[in-house]
Write a protein that binds this DNA or RNA. Structure first.
Length: 401
DNA sequence: ACAACCGGGCTCTGCCATTTTC
DNA sequence: GAAAATGGCAGAGCCCGGTTGT
């Protein structure tokens, strides 16, 4: 069953709870890159008195400097670590180096999450092995650590980590989905398994409240999985936030159960992790903007249901996009009918409108679908439009001149 | 041939506050 | 009473193209 051998756990406990030295050395490091083993009575460490009340471990600071650690940053982040007498910077650095991390990456990791140097080698090896159950190579794990040292090091509970892997697998995520989940939101790993379970439970409850049952399609479990699959950030948000967003969407759009269900397990999942305030603010400003353009509640609902990501876009950005479209001769009703144009950047939209205007494209006659295509498809279309121009018309110039 | 539909890829940490542990 | 562990927060899009439908 458990891949964590008891002997390993016992050793971990011994190292973390006693003052035994960490056994391994990393030959490539300068000598003395581990704070000295304390003598049984703890006296005269590094020629100075026992650190008490706020004084830092000078030799530890020296070691960290040699590793290239940004002491200022480390001190600001976790000052207590710099006062510790027994640390394992040598072991940790050697371990990471053996996994393929460069000196700069290692320094960055320790600078941003100093507590990393309190982990024992046995602990690290266990934890690494658990991560490797999801990630195919050491370098993938190193990449994540480089990105987010905290995700790997914040918790020292390997048993909990294993529970998480088992739990997430049990939800029915295949290897690829699990990989995506943890690449994108590695903090999920260091959540307590209980916290992750609570979020899944919340989503299942929402599904049940919206009419799903054990025999429905999907089941509440399937619903929870769908939501998480569509928005992997959900698991690193609070249940309170997600619950409030669900309620806010239901209330502000006046959705019935079936509509809300479809929205949440579909594209609406993507906005569930927004902060409650941001979601509310964006909804209000969208409603106002739409109202100023003569659109009512029904139009807003249609737009949001078809394209919930509209609430993800900041109000300023969205305003700019809509203005660019309207200036170019697109009607707001066309945007409501084909909201995915809003997926593209303002710059992209404005640029395409300009190109189209040069060939006399009329949005009112031909629609705006052309704005919602990849660059390749758009260019192909442009070529045809140019070819169809009357010979007297000068060809459109490149580069917006 | 073209439009419409739809999902996928990229990617999200670094800090603060509170609770727990030692 | 400290450090460690843990929960929570703010921040804020864009683009591509395979497949299916007509």
């Amino acid at each position: 069953m458990s891949r964590l051998r008891e002997t390993g756990l016992d050793l971990l406990k011994i190292y973390s709870s006693s003052l035994l030295p960490f056994p391994r050395t990393a030959p490539w490091l300068p000598r003395g890159l581990c704070t000295a083993t304390p003598t049984p009575d703890g006296d005269h460490l590094h020629g100075k008195q026992k650190t008490s009340a706020g004084s830092e471990n000078v030799s530890l600071l020296e070691n960290l400097s040699l590793l290239g650690v940004d002491l200022k940053k480390a001190r600001q982040r976790q000052p207590g670590v710099l006062r510790k007498l027994l640390t394992n910077e040598q072991g940790v650095a050697g371990f990471l180096q053996a996994k393929g991390a460069s000196r700069q990456v290692i320094a960055g990791i320790i600078s941003r999450y100093p507590r990393a140097i309190t982990r024992s080698l046995d602990h690290l090896e266990q934890r690494w092995a658990l991560w490797r159950r999801v990630f195919a190579s050491d370098s993938e794990v190193v990449d994540i650590l480089h990105r987010s040292p905290e995700s790997f090091f914040r918790s020292s509970d390997n048993e909990n980590l294993e529970k998480n892997i088992v739990f997430l697998s049990s939800l029915g995520f295949d290897a690829k989905a699990l990989h995506r989940l943890l690449t994108t939101a590695p903090r999920t790993f260091s959540n307590s398994a209980e916290l992750n379970r609570q979020m899944v439970e919340l989503l299942e409850d929402v599904g049940s409240e919206l009419g799903l049952t054990r025999r429905s399609e999907p089941t509440p479990e399937g619903f929870a999985k769908a939501v998480i699959g569509r928005n992997v950030y959900v698991l690193i948000r609070s249940t309170r936030r997600v619950r409030r967003n669900v309620e806010a969407l239901r209330a502000s759009l006046r959705l019935d159960d079936a509509e809300l269900l479809a929205l949440l397990q579909g594209p609406g999942a993507e906005i569930l992790d927004l902060s409650n305030e941001y979601l509310g603010k964006n909804f209000r400003s969208l409603r106002e903007k739409m109202a100023s353009l003569g659109c009512g509640r029904a139009d807003v609902k249609r737009l949001v249901v078809a394209y919930p990501m509209v609430l993800y876009i900041s109000s300023e950005n969205l305003s700019g996009k809509l203005d660019a479209l309207l200036r170019g001769g697109v009607s707001i009703q066309q945007v409501v009918d084909k909201p995915k144009v809003l997926d593209y950047s303002t710059q992209n939209i404005a640029g395409r409108i300009e190109e189209l205007q040069r060939v006399g494209y009329e949005f009112q006659r031909h629609g705006i679908a052309i704005l919602d295509t990849s660059r390749k498809r758009f260019d192909a279309k442009m070529l045809k439009l140019c070819a169809a121009l009357p010979p007297s018309t000068p060809p459109p110039q490149e580069g917006g001149g």
